[in-house]
């Protein structure tokens, strides 16, 4: 728990709401400078996890350390080292972008210059616009701007690009790339797997309150999940075969068919395919809100793998 290289350290984190289980034993670490993504369907426990780490919720049991501090007892000095971009905000927005950023900058010891932050999130032209008059995506950028204005060591991004158009998302990714280059550690939750693939160094897939897999993005699901699929049509029926040597199989098919097989495809599973497999497979075994079934998966995938 005291490894100074870890900005976040979580051991067997559990959270129950009355009789319902939100988290059933989650374990992971985030190393300094790392961008870590939490992936999972709605209600999987992503936001519960991130809100426990932000200090908004108390855990039922387990251990959690954020920048070396128990988030349940994090004080002002601890908060000054965090940047938090919440999932949804709905403030009345009677102040302008410039006023809001200038005001919040005053909370921090060594804030980023307001002009620089507005430039970074692409709101310079909206500086004098009241937040209430911005579009949804522009408001989200204000949220992000408020999250980074205090030069956080650790930035929480809870579904930051929901409602962004594709161009705005690309720009947001550039912004995060810049923060990463500065050494900011980031915990990200997202529904967009391309976003996780682009931004995250490692990811955990969480479902039903447990981590079903954790690792580098290109390792998720294990080697087996990445085996390409060769698909073709034979006498009207769809055939498919998973093989580590798709070229050999295609060559064999070519020989056997005496030419091009019908509807030939070689498919490398995308992150999305792997993710859906992971989530689908875990869903069969565990019901997130079923407390009658004991938690069989109390050890995380990372521990199991180690």
């Amino acid at each position: 728990m005291t490894d100074p290289d870890n900005v976040v350290s979580v051991r067997d984190l559990r959270k129950t709401y009355g009789t319902a289980t939100g988290l059933a034993g989650v374990t992971f670490d985030i190393r300094r400078g790392e961008t870590f993504a939490l992936l999972g369907p709605n209600g999987a426990g992503k936001s519960t996890t991130i809100e426990i780490l932000e200090g908004y919720r108390d855990r039922t049991s387990g251990e959690a350390s954020v920048l070396g501090v128990d988030p349940q007892h994090g004080g002002i000095d601890w908060k000054a080292r965090l940047g938090i971009v919440l999932q949804n905000t709905g403030e009345s927005g009677n102040v302008t972008v410039l006023e809001q950023l200038t005001h919040f900058a005053g909370y921090y010891r060594n804030p980023r210059p307001v002009g620089e932050v507005m430039e970074a999130v692409g709101l310079t032209s909206k500086a004098k616009t009241r937040i209430g008059n911005l579009s949804g995506g522009q408001r989200r950028r204000v949220d992000v701007a408020l999250g980074i204005i205090g030069r956080p060591e650790l930035l929480f991004l809870d579904e930051p690009t929901t409602g962004f158009d594709p161009e705005a998302r690309r720009q947001f990714w550039e912004l995060i790339d810049g923060l990463k280059a500065d050494g900011t550690s980031i915990l990200l939750t997202t529904h967009y797997l391309d976003e996780a693939a682009h931004l995250a160094d490692r990811a955990a897939v969480i479902n039903g309150g447990v981590i079903v897999d954790i690792g580098r993005i290109d390792e998720l699901g294990g080697a087996d999940a990445r085996i390409p699929v060769v698909r073709w049509r034979e006498r009207g029926a769809l055939r498919e075969e998973r093989t580590t040597e798709p070229a050999a199989l295609v060559a064999k098919l070519h020989t056997e068919h005496g030419g091009e097989p019908d509807g030939l495809e070689v498919i490398r599973p995308s992150l999305e395919d792997i993710y859906l497999d992971l989530v689908g497979a875990s869903r069969i075994g565990t019901d997130p809100l079923d407390t009658a079934s004991p938690d069989t998966d109390t050890t995380s995938a990372e521990e199991a793998r180690a």
């Binding site: 100074p4 300094r32 400078g33 920048l67 070396g68 004080g75 002002i76 000095d77 000054a80 080292r81 005053g106 909370y107 010891r109 060594n110 980023r112 210059p113 620089e116 932050v117 430039e119 970074a120 999130v121 692409g122 980074i148 030069r151 060591e153 720009q171 947001f172 550039e174 912004l175 790339d177 810049g178 923060l179 280059a181 500065d182 050494g183 900011t184 550690s185």
Partner: peptide, 27 residues
């Protein structure tokens, strides 16, 4: 949209204590 370049690298030691009565009143 450009990225910020002047950020200081995060440090491992905790930041100096900023929680004081004077600061509370100023804020």
């Amino acid at each position: 949209m450009t990225t910020t370049t002047t950020a200081q690298p995060p440090t491992t030691e905790p930041a100096p204590r900023i929680h004081s009565l004077g600061r509370s009143i100023r804020l």
